[in-house]
Simulated assay, not measured.
Amino acid sequence: MRIVRMWKSLSRTRSVHNHQEQHDHQEYKATGNSTSEACTSLTVWRKSLLISCKGFTVIDSNGDLVYRVDNYVGHPEEVILMDGSGKSVLTMRRRKKLSLIDTWFVHDGEAGNCYPTRSTFAASKSMPTFYVRKNKNMLNTNPRSILAYVYREACGHKRHTYMIEGSFTHRSCKVLDESRNVVAEIKRKEANNGGVSYGLDVFHLIVHPGFDSGLAMALVLVLDQLFS
């Protein structure tokens, strides 16, 4: 019964969003990138498809389910991003030791019981590939405030690989690489021709060519923890 309800909910989601998603997809293809390869436009819905669960549902421009997060309650120590079939794609883990700077580690797949401490890295088969650190000097009044830095674990702790600027509260963020090229964006989803207002629970995630959409969604989940 729960699965039936889940797919009924997904069908309603498709019927509501599919027409505008295809319109937005064409718009981003025309204006989002100068190369022949188009950006990927995803709609993020801050709602689980499972009854009595909280989470996220992510659909593509065709209305197909591509990512989901279930059992997302409060401020968890761990968040698992799954694909549409329920397979674990990435696991985000909050740094457990006391620190003034909020930090999240990103693992491939399901990380199991390995927490990101130096003593467990050597024994773990699931070392983090990235970690996200909140900017402690963030100025909320600046629209280009740097919200967080993203580091590649293999490169050590000195230089960030990506940075995220803007305002997640207003669903207006950009992920930039070291050369300040935009690799992903979070944007408000606007109603067409005076239609229904989507509010903050439904928004766009635009992934530029060459950037992994799973990592982009992982950054959304971490930002939701840091700033919601």
Rank of each mutant, 00 (worst) to 15 (best):
V58A: 08
E110A: 08
V16G: 02
T120Y: 04
E190T: 09
F203K: 11
S119P: 00
N193W: 00
V44Y: 01
K97P: 11
G109Q: 12
M138A: 08
L98G: 03
I164W: 06
T103I: 05
D60K: 03
A123C: 14
L200E: 02
T141I: 11
V207F: 13
G199T: 11
C173D: 08
L147Q: 03
H17S: 05
L226H: 06
E165W: 08
C114D: 10
T117E: 08
Y67P: 04
M127S: 06
M6G: 07
K189R: 09
Y149S: 05
K174P: 08
G55P: 08
M1S: 13
V222K: 01
Q20R: 02
A123E: 07
K47S: 11
E77G: 09
V175C: 13
D70I: 11
R14N: 09
S15A: 15
M138H: 11
T129W: 00
H19A: 14
A191Y: 15
N142V: 00
A111E: 00
T129M: 11
C114G: 07
H19P: 01
Y28C: 02
K96N: 08
S145G: 04
D24Y: 11
G194R: 04
F227Q: 10
Y28W: 05
D108P: 00
D224F: 07
L223W: 12
K8G: 04
G63F: 15
L221Y: 07
W45D: 05
M6H: 00
I51W: 06
I3Q: 12
N192K: 15
A216N: 08
M6D: 13
C173V: 10
R188I: 12
V106Q: 09
L81N: 09
G166L: 14
R68N: 08
V89W: 01
Y28G: 04
H204K: 10
N192I: 13
N142D: 14
A111L: 15
A111F: 05
K125W: 02
T129Y: 02
V73F: 14
S172Q: 09
V16Y: 08
Q22R: 15
A216S: 15
K136M: 01
I164H: 01
L98I: 04
E110C: 12
A122C: 01
R152G: 07
K54Y: 09
N137P: 14
K8A: 10
S197C: 09
G32E: 10
V66A: 01
T13G: 07
L205T: 05
D108C: 02
R2M: 09
P76M: 10
R2H: 15
S99W: 05
F130A: 13
H107L: 05
L219I: 10
L223D: 11
F105G: 11
V222T: 06
F227M: 10
R14K: 13
H17D: 04
S213N: 03
